[in-house]
Nucleic acid binder design. Structure first.
Length: 541
RNA sequence: GGCCCCAUCGACUAGUGGUUAGGUCAUCACCCUUUCAAGGUGGUAGCACGGGUUCGAAUCCCGUUGGGGUCACCA
């Protein structure tokens, strides 16, 4: 029972730390002030991420999961994954596995989930059908729900008619029984039931009551029940709808906080009504602002990648994505100018109170910048471990003229990393963007040749190659001295040789310091490339 | 359309009655420099609008406008 903190948090945010330090975590606390005793019951925070297994993990879903996770961990509570597979027709094979795998990739590991189990299972809704059935029956008994035999066609017809009449499309309550205030005689319902005709079960939304609740991020929100439809609770295939299943599960899995996207805000009153029917205490809720396309519509395919898997494939790291997505709608607040946060720091600093209300545009440029920050600061060993498999895969496709044991060594890769870490945007670019560290150039930047070559260039290279060959210590410093001494008596600038050297050595006109580049490549490779370059580059004035 | 939510630079945001409206990304200029980056310095750029309340409003209230979400036997 660790979440003593939760209750204090809810009761008195400002006194939290004061009270926190007064009591050791336990189940029950008594506080007596002026003969008045305040009793607090500890309750461990439990949050959930409840995706449906219909495919990939959406970045919005990742953020929702992350906020649930951060909040739970911050409060010393548990984060749970539940799979909402009540629509069997949309179920996608392996989606559940991928969802959980992708979350774990991001560092979001559930305390309870279908894969890892827990005390509140099963964690897949299709395995909880008997529970929904039982509680649906209870609602039926209590006259909070009723059978409805309307067909899809009938419903659609009714809808069209209402639209034509300028009314709001809403279920017409044709099957609401007489004893519940409707017009359908019990006999007819029984008749249909006996015949075994397909039906759904609808909840009866009370007329003209006001449903009010306090949203943690939005404050008070109010709905009029007259605008709420008699929601289907059980579908004709015997599966519950989302609304019903999630309320039942949220209750029995004892979640203390529901943190989800704003798209759920308008179904909140239905859920609240269900809690009321059952006499259960609803959890606290927080509706997160939506993630937006650049045109400010709800983030969607069509306008770029939305699957976390897409970003993984492109080479974004978990650190950067988590960091980025966390900042979309949350910030530490006044006084902080921190941009880069580790998961630990996020857990430490996160709070639902500081989640914003307005939607946030998913801005890829900031993500790119963050990714670079991480690459700049990631320890070389870590990068080596990431790059090596990429290089090895590449080496299976392409032959290298350089000694394999050297270019695949940690020492060599670390040198490449130090030269390139401020020049790459993704980890894989240490290989793909810097292939000249491992493979011979096959093309030589034409624009650059035009700009940097003169009639003398090839001879200069040839002459310098001889000097390089005689250099025993092939270090950047020595190469620099040698080059300057070579060029000075000729009345040339160092640049006259530097640029051509870079081009023959790498094929491109940009990259790290030339001297360091040559040092890392090594004498043998450099001499070979000068030779090949001279042969291949035909300068025409 | 009904209902609900939202509104500070192009983007992410700080700001909770008194600030020259701050930071980050992007962008521009300059510096550094063998290239490309990185880094440094500086700049452009914002409180949607209209009414109140108040000595004083980005901040509180009302309205308008704009945007979004939602109105399924999908979640």
């Amino acid at each position: 029972m660790k979440s003593f903190r939760l209750i204090l948090y809810l009761v008195t945010e400002s006194n939290k730390f004061f009270l926190d330090s007064l009591f050791a975590p336990n189940r029950c606390y008594c506080l007596t002030i002026n003969h008045t005793t305040l009793i607090m019951v500890a309750q461990r925070v439990r949050t959930r991420f409840a995706p449906s297994p219909t495919g990939y993990l959406h970045v919005g879903g990742l953020r929702t999961a992350l906020y649930n996770y951060l909040f739970a961990k911050k409060m010393d509570g548990d984060f749970i994954i539940r799979i909402e597979d009540t629509d069997q027709s949309r179920k996608v094979e392996d989606a559940q596995k991928n969802l959980i795998k992708t979350l774990e990739w991001a560092g979001i590991v559930a305390d309870e989930s279908p894969e890892h189990g827990g005390d509140y299972g099963p964690y897949v809704q299709s395995e909880r059908l008997d529970i929904y059935d039982k509680y649906c029956r209870q609602l039926l008994n209590d006259q909070h729900a009723y059978y409805c035999f309307a067909t899809h066609e009938e419903l659609e017809e009714n809808r069209q008619l209402q639209i034509k009449q300028g009314l709001q499309p809403k279920y017409n309550r044709k099957w609401l029984p007489e004893e519940m205030g409707g017009t359908m005689p019990a006999g007819i319902i029984k008749q249909k039931l006996d015949k075994g005709l397909p039906y759904v079960i609808r909840m009866k939304v009370p007329d003209y009551v006001s449903v009010w609740f306090e949203d943690i991020v939005r404050g008070p929100v109010e709905f009029d029940s007259a605008t709420i439809d008699d929601q289907v609770l059980m579908k004709s295939d015997g599966f519950p709808t989302y609304h019903f299943a999630s309320v039942i599960d949220d209750h029995f899995m004892e979640f203390t906080h529901i943190i989800r996207g704003e798209e759920w805000l308008s179904s909140m009153p239905k859920h609240l009504l269900l809690y009321e029917f059952f006499g259960w205490e609803p959890p606290k809720v927080a509706h997160l602002p939506l993630l937006l396309n650049p045109d400010r519509s709800k983030l969607s395919k069509r306008q770029g990648d939305v699957a976390v898997e897409d970003y993984i494939r492109k080479g974004y790291s978990a650190d950067a994505i988590v960091n980025f997505v966390a900042m979309l709608g949350w910030n530490e607040g006044e006084g902080s100018e921190q941009e880069v946060y580790s998961m630990e720091q996020l857990i430490q600093k996160f709070s639902l109170e500081r989640v914003g209300k307005a939607g946030a545009v998913f801005n890829i440029e900031k993500l790119n910048w963050l990714e670079k920050q991480y690459i700049k600061n990631r320890p070389a060993e870590k990068l080596v471990a990431i790059i090596k498999p990429i290089l090895k895969a590449e080496l299976e496709q392409k032959k290298s003229l350089m000694p394999l044991e050297i270019i695949t060594s940690d020492a060599y890769l670390e040198k490449v990393i130090e030269l390139m870490r401020e020049r790459v945007g993704f980890e894989h670019e240490f290989v793909t963007f810097s292939s000249y560290f491992y493979f011979e150039p096959e093309t030589w930047d034409e624009e650059a040749i035009k700009k940097r070559w003169s009639v003398e260039t090839n001879n200069l290279l040839k002459g310098f190659a001889v000097l390089l060959d005689s250099l025993d210590d092939f270090s950047a410093e020595n190469i620099e001295i040698l080059l300057k001494e070579f060029v000075a008596p000729k009345g040339l600038k160092a640049a006259a040789l530097i640029h051509p050297l870079r081009i023959v050595a790498s094929g491109v006109s940009f990259g790290p310091s030339l001297y360091h580049l040559l040092e890392v490549l090594g004498k043998e490779t450099v001499l070979r490339r000068i030779q090949v370059g001279i042969e291949k580059i035909n300068y025409v004035d």
